[in-house]
Amino acid sequence: MALSRREITKDVLQQSAEAAIASAGHVVAILFESARKITTEVGAFGTEIFEITEASRRADEDAEDTNPAAE
């Protein structure tokens, strides 16, 4: 039994829609993964800044303890 032109058109539209949805899903997954990685990196940068600030504060305190006349 041969397929009618309408059946072929329906199949083409269905497969095209499925392909488009799958591609959109992959793109969205890439965007979410990228956003997650960016958030992780920004958080790591913030941690570095806090550590640098804390080290600077401790260095200032150590300098004051070893050289009280500098005040």
Score class of each variant (00 low, 15 high):
44 A>P: 01
21 I>T: 13
58 R>E: 09
51 E>W: 06
28 V>N: 10
70 A>S: 04
56 S>P: 02
19 A>Q: 11
13 L>I: 15
57 R>N: 03
41 E>C: 08
61 E>Y: 00
40 T>P: 05
62 D>W: 04
2 A>W: 04
60 D>G: 13
16 S>N: 11
16 S>P: 02
68 P>N: 02
50 F>E: 12
49 I>W: 00
6 R>W: 01
43 G>C: 03
11 D>I: 01
65 D>W: 12
53 T>W: 05
54 E>Y: 14
14 Q>N: 07
3 L>G: 02
41 E>A: 13
68 P>V: 07
23 S>P: 07
12 V>K: 10
57 R>G: 01
70 A>N: 06
52 I>G: 04
51 E>Q: 13
56 S>C: 10
57 R>E: 05
50 F>Q: 14
23 S>L: 12
7 E>Q: 05
71 E>D: 06
22 A>G: 00
55 A>L: 07
21 I>S: 15
52 I>W: 05
2 A>S: 03
14 Q>P: 00
54 E>M: 13
15 Q>Y: 01
31 L>I: 13
59 A>H: 06
63 A>Y: 10
28 V>T: 15
16 S>I: 09
30 I>Q: 15
25 G>I: 01
15 Q>P: 03
53 T>V: 04
20 A>Q: 12
21 I>C: 14
12 V>D: 06
6 R>M: 03
57 R>V: 06
20 A>H: 08
70 A>Y: 02
51 E>A: 08
32 F>H: 01
44 A>N: 03
15 Q>D: 08
70 A>D: 05
62 D>N: 05
14 Q>R: 02
23 S>Q: 10
30 I>S: 00
15 Q>M: 11
48 E>K: 06
3 L>S: 03
31 L>Q: 12
64 E>R: 13
33 E>T: 05
20 A>G: 08
39 T>H: 15
32 F>Q: 04
45 F>M: 08
52 I>L: 15
34 S>N: 01
57 R>L: 01
29 A>V: 06
60 D>R: 15
56 S>F: 07
11 D>F: 10
9 T>E: 10
20 A>F: 08
21 I>R: 14
18 E>R: 09
53 T>Q: 09
65 D>F: 13
42 V>W: 01
70 A>Q: 02
37 K>Q: 15
32 F>D: 10
42 V>C: 08
8 I>G: 07
23 S>A: 13
51 E>N: 15
19 A>E: 12
24 A>N: 10
28 V>Q: 15
69 A>E: 10
63 A>N: 11
16 S>V: 09
18 E>Q: 11
2 A>Q: 06
22 A>V: 02
46 G>M: 07
52 I>S: 08
43 G>R: 08
64 E>M: 14
36 R>G: 06
52 I>M: 10
65 D>E: 14
35 A>S: 03
61 E>F: 03
56 S>I: 12
13 L>T: 15
10 K>N: 07
65 D>Q: 15
37 K>L: 10
37 K>R: 15
55 A>P: 00
51 E>T: 10
